[in-house]
Amino acid sequence: MKAQRLPLLIPALLVALVLVSGLSILAGKVWIAPAELFAGDDRWPIIVELRLPRVVLALLIGCGLGMAGAAMQGYLRNPLADPGLFGVSATAALGAVISIFFGLAATPMVLSGFALAGAALAVLLLSAIAGQSGSVIVFTLAGVVISSLAGALTALVISLAPTPFATGQIINWLMGALTDRSWDDVMLAAPLIVVGMAVIASAGRALDALTLGEAAARTLGMRPAVLQAQIVIGIGLVVGASVAASGIIGFVGLIVPHLIRPLTNRRPSAVLLPSALAGALLLLVADSAVRAAPTVSELRLGIAMSLLGAPFFLALLLKMRRQIG
């Protein structure tokens, strides 16, 4: 009857986050030993202006995507659900790609603004298509439609790109990374992700009720239209802001809730917070690894996550097939 099967899960994740954050700030193509720093090192700008915003952004986006994934799985009652399913990230990416296409991306914040506008558009479309029904199936199908439409339009924009340079820039951005991010990016993403996470967290009880199916959940006080609004707005904010800051980084929302769920009592609300922390941990470890890895050009974070995520997804599928069969 405890909230957590492992009562130390959250403290353990917090300790790990602090340790990895510290390491990540010190590590990179140049290793900066703590002792040197406190002896008046002139490399402080590397830490404060380059590594710190990148670490903070990885933490924020990881937190948001981890929690968004846990909420999606709870809402759809499907362990294979991912925040990308609703088409919010695809539409946000389309917005960003359009800004690059028109050569507007050089101006600060324009790309982010376009991405957020794309996310908002996806949220509005989702609400318009799914309507007041609150039906999970209609909602998911609406997400699939929006997602494939955004994907097709993105491909169209790429094929129409005016110069090979623009094409390269679009593809480069689509792959997702946290390279060369500044405090401006943090300032834009942070409030949106934090508010989005708060909205998602407020849906915890309704997600718990949904464990017993839609009808039983409604007799436990769950209001389908309210829950749907919480999910759309919460995931829209988190995923929109994440894509605006980093491009598409997949699989975090899929993998993390899976690893966390067995460590809890499996109530959807009990999975939310640990998934946020573990998402932050996963993304920070992955980003630090691609940053510190001795490769000529940095491996893109989005690609690294997909290389990690796809086999995981496959293993999951095979395990589920065995359980069914």
């Binding site: 009652r77 718990d208 464990t211 017993l212 436990l220 009592n265 499996r266 959807p268």
Partner: peptide
């Protein structure tokens, strides 16, 4: 319908 392989105590808590 019972999702997520919850145990009986968790089910009752719902």
């Amino acid at each position: 319908e019972v999702n997520w392989d919850i145990d009986v105590a968790t089910l009752v808590s719902l």
